[in-house]
Design a protein around this nucleic acid. Sequence first.
RNA 1: GGCCCUGUAGCUCAACUGGAUAGAGCAUCGCAUUACGGAUGCGAAGGUUUGGGGUUCGAAUCCCUACAGGGUCACCA
Length: 598
Amino acid sequence: MLHLDSLISQSISDACNELFGFRPDEKQISIQSTRSEFQGERTVVVFPFTRLAKKSPEETGDAIGKYLVEHQEVVTDYGVVKGFLNLSISDKYWATALSSAVLEKNCFGLQPLGSKPQVMVEYSSPNTNKPLHLGHLRNIFLGYSVSNILKAAGHDVVKVQIINDRGIHICKSMIAWQLYGGGETPTSTGEKGDKFVGRFYVAFDKQYKIEISELLASGYDQKTAEADAPILLAARELLHKWEAGDSDVRELWSTMNGWVYDGFKFTYTEMGVDFDKLYYESDTYLIGKDQIEKGIESGAFIRREDGSVWIDLTDVGLDEKLLLRKDGTAVYMTQDIGTAILRFEEYPNLDRQVYTVGNEQEYHFKVLFEILAKLGLSQASRCHHLSYGMVELPEGKMKSREGTVVDADDIMAEMKTTAEQLARDAGKLENIPEEDRESLFKDVGYGALKYFLLKVDPKKSMLFDPAASVDFIGNTGPYIQFNYVRARSVLRNAGIDDVASLSPISPVHFDDTERSLLMSALSLPGIIEEAAKSYDPSLVANLCYDITKSYSSWYQNHPILNEEDDQVRTARLALCALSSSAVQIGMSLLGVSMPERM
RNA sequence: GGCCCUGUAGCUCAACUGGAUAGAGCAUCGCAUUACGGAUGCGAAGGUUUGGGGUUCGAAUCCCUACAGGGUCACCA
């Protein structure tokens, strides 16, 4: 909410009280931007008051408008159209709002750290056997950005990742490496560690399929063939040895995981994201098992005759769910229970926990939270699944089998090259010093990618069109960066070192274009708050675009440096400064860095 | 089949959470350049918000229903 709106809202409440003898509650007072075809900047919807005021919408609006002009100095004029009260705001208000926003400089819209409770955000948490792909990019950028936004809104944020470093899937690539690896390592082959291990995971799958079809040919039924394929049995054997602490198996396990981590680390650094703490499933699954034992004692869980442990959630409309296999080994859910509990123990001040995980796991998290509740843990209500939709390609879903998976490292490299190519085509290359190029192309290329993935409402599935994503015009990251660069250039040419020196700003006349630009930029604090509440970076992305579009259009026909009237010139410089810093702050929340030149 | 999500311009997305004549970008067509950075700006065209009911001052938004698409219901993670 605009600061302005809270002033107006208060006065409306007073007006209703004095004129009609009732105070509307906050939710009834709806203030929005005035449509451009009408006079004024803010519009109040008066319908909610008409019943209690016992007057027609027009009369009600007129009475409130009159009251506001008399009692609220920021309101200079009003007009009533149907049930809508349009308010004109004084130049003086805009000037002071601009002044104080400019004074805040790089902190505009940011709440003091720790003014809100501590929140933990989990994101990324990839399968360690598969290289990162496009879907992970959405997850990672989303989680990182939500963390930034929560921090900006004043929360103390802990960024974490759960590493699924144990389990049957890991054993699959281990057995494949033992069988076909011939002792090679990422160093010996020159491969990126995660890709190297991923190759063996694929090799496992290939062999597994061959063995299944052989078994089928010799008369097995599908289910038995899938369960009894020799290579799968070998992987299970490894899992047992691992759980028993066999030292050879553990050593191979930690070596191969090390390769994967090295590979991921490279990609994270390239993306500019980081974590405060890593949780490893191998450390938390035992806690989960303990909890399950407790749950059996308390009667929340049931142990069946074959030894497997289950929870019955049919009473809350879910199914029965397996918690421990009959051989006593842990499943995915087991460690998730342990991890959730461990986190709240380790961070006693933790208010809530946010899991950034794709929407295909909505059911899983529903079950998890329900289990925590059945265990009698109050944390259950403080867990939130930040669910996001899939990224689809023009030709449909990504399928590894069909080779349509878009690899994360590949797409990032491609974005960087495209940035360079476009700079060359635009003839901008010679203006950029050699030593700055690498980081500039990363800013622009990765910026385009991050913005492209974050501008869409997270919960919706989205289409990734490679051609459109590398486009640098229209609603794209580079378009925003470009206009930022131009604005910064104006400020440099004006010789402004410290934008705070522009304040105070005299109440010059602001025209419509200026008012709407100003309103856009001033809404940053409210948008940050809203984005933090709804875990939605797209709100911030869209605001950055709005500000940029307003700025660009304003810039086209409002001279700044060439303006002769000193007061107007200062006001315009301030507007330029505010717009650019608001955009810079917003984009940084998305994890996009803004170049000074491009 | 049960449960969950989605359906807005040719395409990709918005719409301040129930507010005025549903807005942007791309693509198409047209206009503007002695310029503080044209990787720009302005305009035209493009809509029965999947169909049908309902709720009310007012619906893309809430309810019911039909249809279409996706997800999920593993001793996988």
